[in-house]
Design a protein around this nucleic acid. Structure first.
Lengths: 332, 332
DNA sequence: CTGAAAGCGCTAACAA
DNA sequence: TTGTTAGCGCTTTCAG
């Protein structure tokens, strides 16, 4: 079929009348080459559309200028800010980000990890902490710098930039209580981090001498539709509900819409709190009170850590809790 | 620093008492190795956490089992369905998807392309058609199978799975007209594909002896907030407006919310049409009439094409228009 | 079923 | 400033 697939630096070298090394230098360190040679090489490169084979280069120099990120299933709005910041920060430093989607499953995650490690990236960013012991072993054995994000653990694989889901639960519970709400409900995705928020919430409820809040679980990913359905189910079972803490802003939007469809005033008859502070949160009517996590900072920090380590600098504070913030708007 | 970074198949071979070739076979073609050897290799691999260096393998075999996708800036909800389907379909066939974000800029796109081509993926999926002549040249010269998506062009680089933006504009215009709306407005992102939809819309308006619809442009990415602001601006300037065609469902949601905040009934006083058919469209109140594009089909088809070509099969119908559909719900 | 030799395309290290 | 040599870790090819 098409034979055109391959120029090598040797071909370019021949065409430009120089050696392969000079071509390599002209491409990677143009300042180390005479202007004449540089011009000739550039002309040939541009004429042929030559792009060097990065795999060969990385193999030789063991520097891929590649960072891999593993994100769960669809790149929902949740991780978007983090990924964008990560991508941008890496880009500024001359690294490329490669995103692998894992799905929520466990074995799929190990398979993705294997695929990632095979490519020998300069660093690996995990959204969420690594639970599978097999995954941990692979990562550790690979010697590749790893940053876990979006969570906290006393036993990180390597570096960590996250926040406490349990404390989010506690804070939201306290916030709702202090606003006078006494019948809150948790509408939540059924994943492990969400459960930790729930535990935090219930723990705080106990501290405040309140009953445990009922919990309604929905399948991930959370959607506007499941938010509406969730509120319906909640109100059927527990009409006195006066507040809902949703595990995502999308869910909260669904609750808002369902409340409006039922003629319920927000926050008068029902308070709503989201999680994520998506762009839409501030523009809703009423504006959504939600928990903000600084995804940009998480992404930038992760990038910084990886690049520092990849370039031989040591990271002084490799475990960071970036916290969170309850953004009080109109809905609660 | 850490020396652990590297086992090679030779190390594994030594530990297992076999040759490197046998290790390679045990990993890639286990059926071609005796059970005894296989067991020994597996034991060592598992004990050491060895993951082979895929760059070396790909370099030798020139098969990376990697497909790269270039998406504009943030992976907004728009391409999400396509990317997810692409990822899944590739995964099923043993390929990994690597996503590169380019930003909307032109030169950034060329830089991303260079980074992608360097890695010699088995295929490249472009969201949107390639305009930069430099980008085209690079792609062509690389000999890598390319699928352009999300658009149609008479001059694709290679393969194409898309739909006509102009026809979407025409169809929506006709749809609105046939429903009796006579003062439509276009609320649209300011990008080239959006402009083609606008042109289609205006062309159809002319055909129907209508005035051209006023156009309000907002910066990409389109947000709920810009939808609200957009409707405000529109109603200020043209109170008789009876329909808005939004260039995304998010924009449409913003319009819906602003309309509701102003006490306007939808579709009674104002009809709203979106684009994208996000999950939320169907769950809104009123449910959103929108243009559905089959992102899943686009992603799956792109994956199929790439893999077919990567594995030496020829693609019989390399240019496909997958069309679109106006989903009539309550908002228009 | 197993192994030895060769080389994918590039760049580190050295020499000129 | 430029070129030569060697080899990154794997797999193709061919021989046993």
């Amino acid at each position: 079929m098409k034979k055109s697939a391959g120029f090598t630096i040797h071909d370019i070298a021949k065409l430009a009348g120089v050696s392969a090394m000079t071509v390599s230098r002209a491409i990677n360190h143009p300042e180390k080459v005479s202007v004449a040679a540089l011009a000739r090489v550039r002309e040939v490169v541009s004429r042929t559309g030559f792009v060097p084979n990065g795999m060969a280069g990385s193999l030789r120099s063991s520097r891929a200028r590649l960072v891999a990120a593993a994100v769960p299933s669809l790149i929902g709005p949740v991780f978007q800010e983090t990924i964008r910041a990560l991508n941008q920060a890496l880009d500024e430093r001359g690294y490329q980000l490669m995103i692998g989607q894992s799905g929520y499953g466990d074995s799929r995650e190990d398979a993705l990890l294997d695929a990632i490690i095979r490519r020998r990236p300069d660093g690996i960013v995990l959204t969420g902490i690594m639970h599978s012991p097999e995954g941990r072993r692979l990562l550790l054995a690979s010697g590749i710098p790893v940053v876990e994000t979006w969570d906290l653990t006393p036993t990180p694989i390597d570096m960590l930039v996250g926040f406490s889901h349990e404390r989010i639960g506690q804070s939201v519970c306290h916030f709702l209580y202090s606003r006078g709400y006494r019948y809150p409900v948790l509408l939540s995705a059924n994943d492990e981090r969400a459960h930790r928020r729930i535990d935090g919430f219930q723990g705080m409820a106990r501290t405040l001498d309140q009953d445990a809040a009922p919990t309604y679980l929905v399948a991930a990913p959370t959607t506007l539709g499941s938010g509406r359905a969730g509120l319906s189910a909640i109100l059927d079972k527990r009409p006195q509900t006066d507040a809902v803490f949703c595990s995502s802003d999308m869910l909260a939007l669904g609750v808002l819409i369902e409340a409006q469809a039922r003629g319920l005033t927000v926050p008068g008859q029902l308070a709503v709190v989201g999680l994520g502070d998506l762009e839409l949160a501030a523009s809703l009517q009423p504006a959504l009170t939600t928990v903000r996590i600084d995804g940009t900072r998480m992404g930038r920090t992760a990038a910084q850590y990886i690049v520092d380590r990849a370039e031989g600098r040591s990271v002084s504070e490799p475990i960071v809790d970036i916290g969170f913030e309850i953004i009080e708007r109109a809905s609660a």
